[in-house]
Computed example of a mutant assay.
Amino acid sequence: MLRLAERALADPWLTAGTDTTWNLLLCLDPDGLRRNERWLTGPYSLGHHYRNFFRPGFLEQPEWLPDGAAAAALPETRALLALQDELRPVLQCSLHGVDVGGGFVELTRDLPGLDRRVAGVAARLGIPRELGAYDALYWPRLGPAVYRIPPPHRGTLAAAITEAAVESTWFHPHRHGTLTAVVEAPMWGVAAVADGSPHPGPAAERRAVSRTLREDTRLLADLTDRIRPHLAAVPDAARLLAPVDDYLLVCPGLADAWDPDTGPSADPLPLLTTAGLTALRLAGRRVVLRTAGLLHQLVSRAGHDPAGALPQLDRLIDARCADYRDGCRARWIPVERQAEYQARVVLAAFALAVRRPRGPSRSGERDWGPGTAVPMHRE
């Protein structure tokens, strides 16, 4: 954000030259940021990251509107919605970090030419482009590493989570003609996510990823049951347990959906390249590591471990981090390069967005409608 501010001030074309005002929101989730402070100062190792990582439960993520904008519960969310309605921006950029993988961009409207600019930025900075991003597994591709966010629609809980099918602050200003770009930058890069070649054994890889996820989920569910009774005195235990319960809820369904022998025939996985299957493997490890890391924090904060869970959690975290590091060859990307990548992609999106016609109110796209998306916690 500060880099963008410096460049907007230094380059008159970015402001007066395009009759543009830049509004920069430094952090949408200050509470979440505070809870991640233990790893933000380093050391930047995978084990340290996941043992201190925090992401809110689905219902406390400020960009999601599972019950619609009118029912937004978080003050941060309500403030952002009000700002969007007041400013009606031509472009909204939401800067995200991917723990392990590659860089990619998600758009609420097409922005021709962005894929080529992202390719140039990524090549200059040595950032792998994620050509089969798991977050956008079922979404239309607008170009390499650029995806179209579908309008919110009713669906299953799995669709709400994996397809971002619920209403969100990304789509809320759509009615004003706003284009939203979600810019994802990796902290640890994996070169294989940029490999668009056919995978030599896609079915076997899917079975392996699914089998590992099932085994890890069973272990984590058992550990959670053993740990939970001893958390009464742990401050904010509910905040840490909420995402744990979310992950444990969706993991069995994810494993079944990814397994070629059990996946639903009505909703098959898209054809997966090496990049896509690498992203699937990373996603399976990610949800396990996040769950294990949160449980590790809960036990550590309790000050005692009557369930004997810490040794098992440490072994699981170490094993899955080793797979990232040695199996997937994940490599740390310095923060300076992460920030530079995001800044350059935002500036590229801006340069293209100010030249495109302003979109109409409620674009009339198929499946766009006023109906409330399925509440993720009630499906």
Rank of each mutant, 00 (worst) to 15 (best):
Y138T: 07
I333P: 03
E76N: 06
P202S: 01
L347R: 10
H230G: 12
T224E: 03
A10I: 10
L9S: 13
R109Q: 14
V288Q: 01
R78V: 10
D99I: 14
P360S: 12
V100A: 05
P235W: 06
E167F: 08
V354T: 15
A233M: 02
G196S: 04
T20F: 13
E167M: 10
V193G: 00
T77S: 11
P311M: 03
R325K: 11
P311A: 02
P56E: 02
A283L: 06
Q61F: 05
D85P: 08
A330T: 01
T372I: 05
L46P: 02
L249Q: 11
R329I: 03
R344C: 09
V209S: 09
R129A: 02
S45E: 14
E167L: 11
L213K: 03
A307N: 04
R78N: 11
R206F: 07
L254T: 03
D367H: 14
D195V: 01
R148L: 15
D256H: 09
G120S: 06
W64G: 00
P89T: 10
D195N: 05
A302N: 14
L81P: 00
C27Q: 15
W188A: 00
S210N: 00
R51H: 02
L80Q: 14
R356P: 09
E167W: 12
E60C: 08
Q342H: 10
R290V: 11
L74A: 06
T162F: 13
T77Y: 00
G253W: 06
S210L: 00
A123W: 13
P66S: 02
T41V: 12
T278C: 08
G371Y: 13
A191T: 04
S300Y: 07
